[in-house]
């Protein structure tokens, strides 16, 4: 008889083994490029202003690292960098992206995040969560009388979700292979 304790392996540990690794330059350069994209590209093509690349990048690295702590730190860094280039008080995007990073990493321990359909759904969900939570924080912490446009947010979430699949496919190429 084999000992059941010996054969039991925590799924989280298994998932951690599948965690992807990236170069430090990738982890710094890609979010920076995403933020700069959001700063400059909508000047030439206003339609692209709806693309929340920093969020998509945060979700990607959190999913692929499969570590909630890494997700929290990564989300906070990207969010604060985004805050520093926005007119908002520092911390608004930081808090929202910290939560996104944490939840994305937590989900990656339960789902096969390589699947395109899963990525599409997660992209949609996190964009909606991001926009909604940002609105909640704006009203709750800053007292701004912003209205939450549900239809618009759903459309923006869908647009970003469709970008998620090809973007993540490109980012997959940047993973380090053992």
């Amino acid at each position: 008889m084999t000992d059941p304790q010996a054969t039991f392996v925590d799924p989280a540990v298994l998932r951690k083994k599948d965690a992807s690794k990236f170069k430090a330059a990738t982890l710094i350069g890609v979010p920076l490029a995403a933020i700069l994209f959001q700063v400059y590209v909508p000047r030439f093509s206003p339609f692209l202003a709806y693309l929340e690349l920093p969020l998509l990048v945060t979700v990607y690295f959190s999913l692929m690292r499969r570590s909630p702590v890494a997700g929290v730190i990564f989300g906070a860094c990207v969010g604060l960098a985004q805050d520093s280039l926005s007119h908002n008080p520092l911390g608004m995007f930081g808090i929202v992206k910290t939560l996104v990073g944490y939840f994305a990493a937590s989900m990656s321990q339960r789902f096969a995040v390589q699947n395109s359909l899963v990525r599409l759904v997660l992209g949609f969900f996190f964009l909606f969560f991001h926009q909604f939570f940002y609105w909640v924080l704006s009203r709750g912490l800053l007292g701004e009388e912003l209205t939450f446009d549900l239809e618009r947010t759903l459309v923006v979430a869908a647009l970003n979700a469709f970008v998620t699949v090809p973007l993540y496919h490109i980012l997959d190429k940047l993973r380090l292979v053992d």
Partner: peptide
């Protein structure tokens, strides 16, 4: 509860930063 602790610390730190600014 390492993950939750880190999350809580990160959010509290940013809330403090926000509160200071506001």
């Amino acid at each position: 509860y390492r993950n939750q602790t880190v999350l809580l610390a990160a959010i509290l730190a940013q809330l403090a930063l926000l509160a200071y600014q506001v």
